[in-house]
Amino acid sequence: MPRIASSEDPSPVLPLDLEREILGTAAELYPETIPNLLLVAHRVQDWIERLKYKTVTSSGVGSSCPFRALRQAIRSNLKPPDFFHHRVRHLFLGLGTTTIAGELEGTLSICRGIQSLVLFAFAGPSILPSLGAMQLRRLSIDLKALFGTRPIDTGHLAFTFVTHLDIFGDTTGQPDLLANLARLPALTHLALFRYHTAILETELSKNKKLQVLIHMQSVGYADDHWISIDDTRFVYMMLSDDEYERDWVVGVKGGMDFWARAALFVAKKRRGEIKPSSRCWIEDGDGI
């Protein structure tokens, strides 16, 4: 018969493993409840604190922690640096984020366990050493801003483990970029913004390792301007800045983000389920 806890009895009623599973699931599904969960008990605080900093975004909406809270926690020196190295896994900094380059550099040098990183701003050469110390799997960034006046170096350590790369900004002035990206050892999914379609088609035919190539377009760009490419891996997509953040949060939680939708479209196209077969963009009737 289950024991009934009294107000004087702080020990758990449920088995610890089950209690931890329930509270951990609640924190993952409803990150806005984390501040209250931290107040339940000391044992719960220890469990939930491991999840609090897992996903960090500019505002904290939809994630477990806003960027300002992460900065404050690091500044407080109440936790050893290794605490954040082992806790922070996903970081998204949008255009509205308030920070300075040196502060971002310091944060990234401590949070070396980040696996998924989005930087809409503040990407400059000073953060390259920090990125090189990580084992990033997913990276969304402006490469021109990241390297500044230097040539874009796709052989940098920052790209060694990257499987999904989304490049912001206009890269048409980098004629060798696609050929260099093809040499990245782990890259399987690539998204580019406003790249010349004919060049994409040529380079895609040479790169058999790439599974998905997304050509990002500005919102409102009509479908009749999209030129089809005779390669099942090629997909046109559109996302506004606001949609991008929400989409990213869904993705790091294992949901259907734009990468997953594009991969599903490619799979359907290979099976002959996309009509006409020449279409390179997702429509409502595709069930994606």
Rank of each mutant, 00 (worst) to 15 (best):
P2M: 12
I4Q: 12
E8L: 15
S11C: 11
P12V: 00
P12N: 00
V13K: 09
L14H: 09
P15Y: 05
L18M: 10
I22M: 07
A26T: 04
A27C: 06
E32C: 14
L38Q: 04
A41P: 11
Q45R: 14
Q45Y: 13
I48Y: 00
R50W: 07
K52D: 06
S59I: 01
V61C: 08
G62K: 02
S63F: 00
A73H: 08
A73N: 03
R75T: 11
R75V: 07
P81K: 01
P81R: 01
F83M: 06
F84K: 02
H86I: 10
R89E: 10
R89F: 08
F92S: 15
L93N: 05
G94Q: 08
T99V: 13
G102H: 14
G106M: 05
I110Q: 08
I110F: 10
I110W: 04
I110V: 15
R112E: 13
R112T: 15
Q115R: 04
L117C: 04
L119V: 06
A123I: 03
G124S: 13
P125W: 10
S126Q: 09
L128A: 10
L128N: 05
L131M: 07
A133T: 11
L136A: 10
I141Y: 07
K144N: 12
A145Q: 14
L146F: 05
G148Q: 13
G148N: 08
G148D: 12
D153T: 09
D153Y: 12
T154C: 15
G155H: 14
F161I: 07
H164M: 08
I167T: 10
G169H: 09
G169K: 03
T171W: 05
L177I: 11
L178Y: 04
R183V: 10
R183L: 15
A186L: 09
F193P: 07
R194A: 15
Y195L: 12
L200G: 03
L200F: 01
K206F: 12
Q211K: 11
L213K: 06
I214R: 08
H215A: 15
S218D: 14
V219A: 12
G220Y: 05
Y221T: 15
D223Q: 14
D224W: 01
H225W: 05
I227G: 06
D230L: 06
L239V: 06
D242W: 05
E243T: 01
E245W: 01
D247C: 09
V249W: 02
V250M: 05
V250G: 10
V250F: 03
G251W: 02
V252W: 00
M256V: 02
W259T: 04
W259I: 04
A260C: 04
A260T: 04
A263I: 03
A263Y: 02
L264I: 00
L264D: 02
V266Y: 00
V266N: 02
A267P: 01
K269N: 01
I274F: 02
E283T: 05
E283H: 07
